[in-house]
Write a protein that binds this DNA or RNA. Structure first.
Lengths: 150, 150
DNA sequence: CTGACTGCAAAATCTTTGCAAAGAC
DNA sequence: GTCTTTGCAAAGATTTTGCAGTCAG
């Protein structure tokens, strides 16, 4: 995994290239997504930031705006399924797909080279310039299956 | 493909099993999804129904309620991506995945047996009871790539 | 300095709910 | 008849926007 300072430089460069400014708020969102493993709604992120950086504050609109920016730049991925709203995760790590439990909302990540390859082939077949791909398997996780039996 | 009357019976049986009633509105949503190839938001469906059945009417809340019911029963699938809201499609046909153009929103369906099989293996590996799986490849379609070059 | 960014409050969406009237069985 | 469903309007929830003040470069 790339180090945080290196990633931050990437982010700064990206901003500079687009005449955008590197602000405390943008760094906060970036950093929080980097430091916290998982998938978060804008609301979640707001809570996390308040909790982990009690001194600093950041408004909900700014979180939305920053996430949109980060998503466009390919730094974060968004994921939407049954539940309301979208969830975001830090995206500059190895590509992976998701198993989503429809009972408890748990997300499990996995990676499968065969599927990755096949996706590329399919995009090529349709003359599609692939920018991203997501595979979500929804179902009931082991824990929730046990609960149902009780 | 199964005939419409047969599918309708399936739907009626499902309703009966849950002490739910077969209403004109429920049939309208069901029929409209069956007859129209594609992916629709609740709003889209409302428009389609108005257009294709000018005499009958159905309110937006009822469409939402019916879609939730149909989705739970596995009769329709929902799909959410970048754009706002969810889109629904008739689900009782061969499983397929999607290529989604992020420029124009076009959806292309495809089916790939190798990927299907692999998904089952992965679910099994994680002791996941799979209820559904979706694969979305996002990117830029052939037409939009040409537009960009102009 | 200058132009971009933020926070606030307000608006725009999208989705759900309460309830009286209508409809299915 | 009884119990569910519908439509309406209203409430909720989520996301976006306008704008004045603030901040980065």
């Amino acid at each position: 995994m790339i180090t945080y300072p290196a990633l931050l430089e990437t982010f700064k460069t990206l901003l500079k290239e687009n005449s955008l400014k590197f602000t405390r708020q943008r760094e906060l969102v970036f950093k929080t997504l980097y430091e916290n493993e998982g998938h978060f709604t804008p609301e979640d992120l707001s809570g996390l930031i308040k909790q982990q950086h009690p001194g600093l504050k950041i408004s909900i609109p700014t979180i939305y705006r920053t996430l949109a920016l980060l998503e466009e730049s390919g730094i974060v991925n968004s994921l939407s399924f049954g539940a309301k709203g979208k969830k975001y995760e830090f995206g500059l790590k190895e590509h992976h797909d998701h198993l989503i439990c429809i009972e408890c909302g748990k997300l499990i990540e996995f990676h499968d080279d065969m599927i990755e390859k096949r996706q590329e082939e399919i995009a090529k077949k349709f003359n599609f310039k692939m920018t991203d791909h997501t595979m979500n398997i929804t179902g009931i996780c082991e824990a929730c299956q046990k609960k149902q039996k009780e």
